[in-house]
């Protein structure tokens, strides 16, 4: 399980609470302190951790609970709910529809794994029976087209790109038009990495978005203001990666997380579902 570290710490805190002879305010505060510490160590934003703590305190009034209720179970449930709420923006993600072209544009910071994820995404939908294609609109980074080309070839997915053309908007428009004509259902546009402090690159991204009019734009926090990000994919959640922060930060932007990347290989890619993710993280099996 990804985020095993955070999961085991939170589960520990819960277990300690359930073992206490009498569940009262002190026991609850102790448990909350432990959970908050674990969350901070997983890079979750300080403000969000604080909000979680307040909200649990508010929702569960240990002293005032009626005698028939199981306080332990209620507290456990409250923690679970809060963790879910933290990761759930409360919005349905875009789902590609069959028998029509779905243009999906990938944006993100440098080195966050866009190109690799594009191929994984295409591979996943290909297995689900969609006709997928890749367009490389990264004209900036050295070797970007080669990377996509090699990935796509390995996964046997058609791709479009150019070594010579330098205008990404042009390539994206051409590629998307071509694949639409050929009846592809999922058309994925890979763009170059960029961050908020780079105005010029943002204009370029808007151009690409205008020309291709994507149905969904995938990933990430600060981008929300500039283009309407539809969904997020969290990459590099494998191993020790303290993805807690990324997960919560992204959820805070209001865009639902659709998938997570858990390794370098093309199969290391899963659908993301908040409830089952949290319950697996806490070691409670995959309940829905």
């Amino acid at each position: 399980m990804v985020l095993a570290d955070l999961g085991s710490k939170v589960a520990d805190a819960l277990r300690k609470m359930t073992r206490a002879t009498v569940v009262d305010q002190t026991v609850m505060n102790e448990m909350l302190a432990e959970i908050c510490k674990a969350l901070l160590q997983a890079d979750v934003n300080v403000a969000q951790v604080k909000a979680l703590r307040e909200s649990i305190k508010k929702n569960v009034d240990v002293e005032a609970l009626a005698s028939g209720l199981n306080k332990r179970k209620m507290l456990e449930q409250a923690v679970c709910n809060e963790l879910c709420a933290m990761l759930d923006p409360g919005k349905e993600p875009y789902v590609p529809k069959k028998k029509q072209p779905n243009v999906i544009m990938f944006v993100g910071l440098q080195g966050c794994g866009k190109t690799t994820t594009c191929t994984k995404y295409a591979h996943l939908y290909k297995r689900k029976g969609f006709k997928c294609a890749l367009v490389c609109a990264d004209t900036f980074r050295a070797g970007a087209f080669d990377q996509l080309k090699q990935n796509a070839t390995k996964a046997k997915i058609p791709f479009y790109g150019s070594y010579t053309e330098t205008d990404p908007a042009q390539i994206a428009a051409e590629g998307v038009a071509k694949f639409k004509e050929e009846g592809y259902e999922v058309i994925i546009v890979d763009t170059s990495g960029r961050h908020m402090q780079e105005e010029a690159l943002f204009e370029e991204m808007e151009q690409v978005a205008q020309l291709t009019s994507p149905d969904d734009i995938v990933f990430a926090s600060a981008f929300k203001k500039k283009v309407a990000v539809g969904s997020c994919i969290i990459t590099k959640l494998d191993g020790h990666a303290k993805g807690g922060g990324a997960l919560s930060a992204v959820a805070a932007t209001g865009a639902p997380i659709t998938h997570i990347g858990t390794g370098e290989h093309i199969e290391d890619f899963e659908d993301f579902e908040v409830k089952s993710f949290v319950s697996r993280m806490l070691g409670k099996g995959n309940i829905k």
């Binding site: 050295a142 070797g143 970007a144 080669d146 990377q147 996509l148 080309k149 090699q150 990935n151 370098e264």
Partner: peptide, 16 residues
């Protein structure tokens, strides 16, 4: 020798 495009990326830099 693993990641796709890694060698080409370096070649672009070397040429530049």
């Amino acid at each position: 020798t693993f990641r796709a495009g890694a060698v080409e990326q370096l070649r672009v830099h070397a040429n530049a």
